[in-house]
Design a protein around this nucleic acid. Structure first.
Length: 473
RNA sequence: GCUCCCAUCGUCUAGAGGCCCAGGACACAGCCCUCUCAAGGCUGGUACGAGGGUUCGAAUCCCUCUGGGAGCGCCA
């Protein structure tokens, strides 16, 4: 039997990190077993589901590369099928009409809570034959009254529930719409889902779903309930703490495979390995090494993993996302230097593509001002002869490339009897505007000869102006 | 309140009775490398929630407690 997994988000909010992790594990499991990954949109909540939310889910999955093999299926498109099952269950006595009003139900709940009992429907309409005038009924599933249900969970082991704890849940509302737990069961059955991988907030729903599956005449699929993901502070994910749309991570400059790598390690492990390519994850993922305990997001580690991927991904691939980030900063990529050399020069000093872009501005535009501290330290009167000297040497270079530039700088340093840093730092500030950049030869190679010579000249002029100003004041 | 789940360094985790006076990773500190910043290398500190068992032996098995979390909707 081929593996069939599904990711079933409800389009009522955004697709955040928790949902993505669930989707990832479903996708990974399907890939690992050469199975089918299905996307199903659970939009039976007509009030809160929106097309925009559906689009956000689709866009997010697309950016991440978690493409479904089947679907998306929409529950709202399957209403006739749900009605059919409900009719059948009504005929077979597996479901019944309940004429209790919302007020009655509320009173019941209040009384039970007051008696320190678990609030649940008491089954008072179970044997009712006659309709009740003026009340549009709901349909309830007739849950077995006794015995127990065992959820054979791949991450938690066997979890046993008493049927006595379960009440008869509503499967069709009085407005005729089916409800979530019921739709899930019918869909998982119709779609022949073999492995239900989802958040463990659904563990408590599972025994009811198993009972309904059995009413349908099938044995349940394999279940795997994943632990929750918590915010950096160890509390539930909220808007304040990490519950942001996945696309936000793109804006922050993360490579999708880096995000996915991080998420895979949140709750799953393969010995001591931390860095995984997509292919490795697909090959190694299993349910046996999924953790049972909830885990907190650690932004520092995400950033580190991001950098690892930046350093090891093909430069051409990084360059594509890098271009997008530069564009966001208003850089004119088309008329600037080639991107791949910049990626190569910058990737070990940037944790995200966004950082890389912010640190690469001077490759596209001459600095408008010098970093104050760096200028005070390096753009000094002592630096002027050095800058003039290197200007001359660089202007005379036959070939403009890093080794040649490096040789020129070394030669100047040697002939003037100073260390390499004495030449490199003023040069770095002159060209980049600050005290930090890739190795100076690489930096100059990318900036280009014209740009470099111009910026050196401007720095010398600036030093002169500073001197004149302080002399005059 | 009831039912269910969970519990190893600050964080992510390895660990399926002896290999563990607990290993890796992030973060942190120091050193090395070095034209800056990084990257990289080396070194260091910090953890089995508590109490009872079982066993020759327990982070690993059992019980209780404590602490977290989830569910208990005509929400999904």
């Amino acid at each position: 039997m081929t593996v069939r997994t599904r990711f079933a988000p409800s389009p009522t909010g955004m697709l955040h990190i928790g949902g993505v992790r669930t989707a990832l594990f479903c996708w990974l499991y399907a890939r690992r077993h050469h199975g089918t990954f299905i996307l199903r949109i659970e939009d039976t909540d007509r009030e809160r589901s929106t097309p925009a939310a559906v689009q956000v889910i689709l866009d997010g999955m697309d950016w991440l590369g978690l493409h479904p093999d089947e679907g998306p299926y929409y529950q709202t498109a399957r209403y006739p099928r749900y009605r059919e099952v409900i009719r059948q269950w009504l005929d077979e006595g597996k479901a019944y009409h309940c004429y209790c009003t919302k007020e009655e139900l509320e009173a019941m709940r209040a009384a039970q809570l007051a008696a320190k009992a678990k609030p649940r429907y008491d089954g008072r309409c179970r044997e009712r034959r006659e309709p009740r005038p003026g009340v549009t009924p709901v349909v309830r599933f007739r849950n077995p009254a006794d015995g127990e249900v065992v959820v054979a969970d791949r991450v938690h082991g066997d979890v046993v529930f008493d049927n006595a704890e379960l009440d008869d849940l509503i499967i069709e509302r009085s407005d005729g719409n089916p409800t979530y737990n019921f739709c899930v069961v019918v869909d998982d059955f119709d779609l022949r889902i073999t492995h239900v991988i989802r958040g463990d907030d659904h563990l408590n729903n599972t025994p009811r779903q198993i009972n309904m599956l059995r009413a349908l005449g099938v044995e349940p699929p394999v279940y795997a309930h994943l632990p929750m993901i918590l915010g950096p502070d160890g509390t539930k994910l909220s808007k304040r703490h990490g519950a942001v749309s996945v696309l936000h991570y793109r804006e922050q400059g993360y490579l999708p495979e880096a995000l996915l790598n991080y998420l895979a390690r949140l709750g799953w492990s393969h010995g001591d390995q931390e860095i995984f390519s997509l292919a490795e994850m697909c090959q190694l993922f299993d349910l046996d090494h999924v953790n049972k305990a909830a885990s907190a997001i650690n932004p520092d580690k995400l950033a580190w993993i991001s950098q690892q991927h930046l350093m090891h991904a093909p430069p051409a691939r990084v360059a594509a996302e890098f271009a997008w980030q530069l564009g966001r900063l208003g850089m004119d990529v088309a008329s600037g230097p080639a991107l791949e050399p910049i990626v190569l020069a910058q990737r070990e000093r940037a944790r995200t593509l966004r950082e890389m872009a912010e640190n690469s501005r001077y490759f596209f535009r001459a600095p408008e001002a010098y970093d104050e501290k760096a200028a005070r330290k390096h753009l000094t009167a002592e630096a002027v002869p050095l800058l003039n000297g290197i200007h001359t040497a660089l202007a005379a270079l036959a070939d403009w490339n890093a080794p040649a530039i490096h040789a020129a700088i070394e030669q100047l340093a040697a002939s003037t009897g100073v260390g390499l840093g004495k030449v490199a730092q003023p040069l770095r500030v002159a060209v980049s505007g600050g005290g930090v950049s890739p190795p100076i030869d690489q930096t100059l190679a990318i900036v280009g000869r014209d740009g470099t010579l111009g910026r050196i000249g401007r720095a010398v002029t600036w030093i002169g102006a500073q001197a004149a100003q302080s002399a005059g004041s």
